[in-house]
């Protein structure tokens, strides 16, 4: 390849690369959304129907992913599990995002005592092992998905608060803020209508990669028996149920785990692609 062509390719490649990554990720997510929406039509069996004659069957034509110790079809359970795990990934990020962004914006904008107090709280929460804090809060509230969401909201906001605060601290010295203030706009209007939209990009990219952490966290919590309760089909529980059968039925933990991996991969691709694309646009 001649030198100018190589240079041209180098210049264009990163922009395309970001888009390809983004579209691949979105395709994976779309696949799982369709799976969740049309689960009743796609799944070949009832996810909680126990077929006593078909226990622990290896993957084959009748059951592509095999069956579990109750004779339930693992493929159908993985498909139905999409509904629960997709919900965990989305809801588990929205609450911390909204709370953290609000607190971070207010703290960064006003500074002083408000800022100092919130940032010390952030320090304390960050000094704790993330999962341990979540487990402790769920122990207080009782096992279940609702407790998991509340625990996430109480713990997860700190990262978002930190991110947005750092942005606001830089942006609030900009001329457009001075202009808005001289026009007599209220603090609330300046914070949420002028500063926030300019500061949000980094948080949105982070929220996409945070989805992966939340998804893994939710599955871990269910794995420990603190999240989704049986017989609901959820990937983390399914892996946990397979733990006792690793010597006899490798397919029991393997396929639900692969589903977690695939969905996480989709979210990671979207995060990477979005990040690269926004970087390229600057």
């Amino acid at each position: 390849m001649s030198a100018p062509a190589a240079a041209l390719r180098l210049r264009i490649f990163p922009r395309f690369e970001g888009r390809i990554t983004l579209f691949l990720g979105l395709a994976v997510l779309l696949f799982f959304v369709l799976l969740a929406v049309f689960a009743p039509l796609i799944a070949p069996y009832d996810p909680i129907y126990q077929d006593g004659t078909a226990r622990l069957q290896a993957p084959g034509w009748a059951h592509p992913f095999g069956t579990d110790n109750f004779g339930r079809d693992i493929l159908s359970r993985v498909i139905w599990g999409t509904r629960v795990d997709l919900q965990i990934a989305v809801l588990g990020v929205i609450f911390p995002f909204v709370i953290g962004t609000t607190i971070g914006t207010v703290a960064g904008y006003f500074g002083g005592v408000v800022d100092a107090v919130f940032m010390r709280i952030v320090d304390v929460v960050l000094a704790f092992p993330y999962l341990v804090l979540i487990i402790a809060i769920i122990a207080i509230l009782g096992p279940g998905l609702k407790s998991f969401y509340i625990a996430l909201a109480l713990v997860g906001w700190v990262s978002y608060a930190r991110l947005i605060r750092a942005q606001i601290l830089v942006l609030k010295t900009a001329d457009f803020v001075l202009a808005a203030r001289s026009l007599g706009y209220s603090h609330r209007r300046i914070m949420f209508r002028h500063l926030l939209p300019n500061a949000l990009v980094g948080s949105i990219v982070f929220s996409m990669s945070d989805t992966v952490l939340v998804l893994l966290g939710g599955a871990s919590i269910s794995f420990l028996g603190l999240g989704v309760q049986p017989p609901t089909a959820e990937w983390g529980i399914m892996v946990s149920e397979g733990q006792g059968f690793i010597t006899r039925a490798w397919w029991m933990p393997t396929f639900p785990g692969l589903a977690i991996l695939a969905l996480s991969f989709g979210f990671s691709l979207v995060a990477d692609g979005l990040g690269e694309w926004l970087e390229g646009r600057k």
């Binding site: 990669s209 992966v212 998804l215 893994l216 599955a219 871990s220 794995f223 983390g236 892996v239 946990s240 397979g242 733990q243 690793i246 490798w250 933990p253 393997t254 785990g257 977690i260 991996l261 695939a262 969905l263 996480s264 991969f265 979210f267 990671s268 691709l269 990477d272």
Partner: peptide, 18 residues
Amino acid sequence: STLGLGMPSFWIALMLMI
């Protein structure tokens, strides 16, 4: 490395055990 990010540790553990 992107795949590695999405692997739950309890699942890796079971796969390694198997």
